[in-house]
Amino acid sequence: MHKFETLDPIVHAPVRLAILTVLISVKSADFTYLKEVTETTDGNLGTHLQKLEDAGYVKVEKSFVGKKPKTTLSITKSGRKAYERYIEGITKYLKI
């Protein structure tokens, strides 16, 4: 049986898993879109994004559209690999 402890704790947190699931299926998404689909607050989303960025799983790009700031997020290669490893891990854990 696959050990639960081997699941990546960065990916395992539900909000972070939700963020990575969204980002793996699109080229990029902005902060407000992620907030809408993950149904979380600005602060909570910001904290989780920071952890994902620190782990090198997510790339954060800040820009301006007119005078409004825009934060665009995309998954990195290592983020994609970590996500795939996580899915493989839970599949083995649940013996699907």
Binding site: M1, F4, L7, H12, P14, L17, A18, T21, V22, S25, V26, V37, T38, I87, I90, Y93, L94
Partner: peptide, 26 residues
């Protein structure tokens, strides 16, 4: 299998399912 851990993993599977349904990929 520890049932708390099992529930956590099941909850996460639901998170994945829900995000896939919500994400606009078209």
């Amino acid at each position: 299998m520890n049932s708390t851990k099992q529930n956590e993993v099941n909850d996460n599977l639901n998170v994945i399912k829900s995000m896939i349904e919500k994400t606009r990929t078209d």
